[in-house]
Design a protein around this nucleic acid. Structure first.
Lengths: 178, 178
DNA sequence: TTGAACGGAGAACGATCGTTCTCTATGCTA
DNA sequence: TAGCATAGAGAACGATCGTTCTCCGTTCAA
């Protein structure tokens, strides 16, 4: 359906930029150009819209990161190059999943579940890039998460943050080589 | 004033557990036992209450972490031992500052500012523990932030997350010694 | 040309929000 | 005892929320 896509794009932009609870359904209607009646035909509640947004964001975010690192020979460093680009995008405001979890995770189990699923997928990708080294993958995951929230709070130094995390990743991946 | 402390304790618990916007002022009144009239005498608006909560939390959180590492000879590893304890506390739900920033940072400049100030203080402490090595301090900061949000989303593995971050910190601090 | 199904605009609804106001009881001062 | 300031309980207010409903114009089959 055409309308669902317009709704998800408009709602996602608003949710990400302002936080979920700060955005009313009428604001989604105005930004998407889809009538309120059809909005509720596509998504029976605001919670359903939020969950659908996060699922779509998971697919797009993971697919963008995955194809970037695939094109660069599955090197771990490519993850942090990709992060640096992402942090520099207009309107970057941290991890939409972590923000949604902090805001709604205690209230909505459906939101908490889709966030955990996204983080599991990210961890799986990092484990694969780490050659199935679970301990290293966990450290890389922590670096990615830490760099992302740090870049959110201090966007002026976001590029430096991504590079610092990338250097840490390199040191952890090849601890005896520098 | 006695009432302000009761209000901050009750409101902080609610804000941290449920998210700020999910908590109404009447809920704060009920949990604190302070009348609505006096609540607004102590804090002229909800935003003022939120900011005061974050400032108090900054003092308590930083002072708890600082005294813990001081008692252990200012070792960097002590930071991650402290994190592991924190993650295991009842009701742990990640970093209250990051959660507040994600929820309100785009709306309230006062909230954004107090969060940035708290993160600056944490970074300053880590820089001191890192012997004024800025690059190392930045990596330690990223590890602390990453471990905290990871522990929020997956509390069942929070202790393992803290230890993984601690091992990464050790490797980065003494890269040629293991 | 008629009529029935549909869709959009937006009014309406009940709930809840942050904030203020009213009312009454209490205690203190003269 | 009389009068006044104060405080708490909670009603009230206007705004806004998520959600539903009403109205009216359009489309298309017969």
């Amino acid at each position: 359906m055409e309308h669902a896509e317009r709704l998800l794009a408009a709602a996602g932009e608003l949710f990400y930029r302002q936080g979920v609870r700060a955005v009313g359904m009428d604001e989604v209607r105005a930004a998407s150009g889809v009538s309120l009646k059809r909005l509720y035909q596509c998504f029976p509640s605001k919670e359903a819209l939020v969950v659908a947004w996060l699922e779509r964001r998971d697919e797009q975010w993971m697919s963008s990161l995955t194809s970037y690192v695939r094109e660069r020979g599955d090197r771990v460093e490519a993850v942090f190059e990709w992060l640096e680009r992402w942090f520099g995008e207009d309107g970057f405001r941290g991890c939409g999943f972590l923000n949604a979890y902090g805001e709604l995770g205690a209230t909505s189990e459906a939101v908490a579940e889709v966030v955990r699923r996204h983080k599991r997928r990210l961890r799986d990708l990092l484990r694969e890039l780490a050659g199935d080294d679970d301990a290293l993958a966990e450290q890389l995951f922590i670096l990615v998460e830490g760099a992302t929230v740090t870049a959110m709070v201090d966007p002026g130094r976001a590029a430096a943050t991504a590079r610092a995390a990338g250097r840490a990743a390199r040191a952890l991946t090849s601890p005896h080589q520098d």
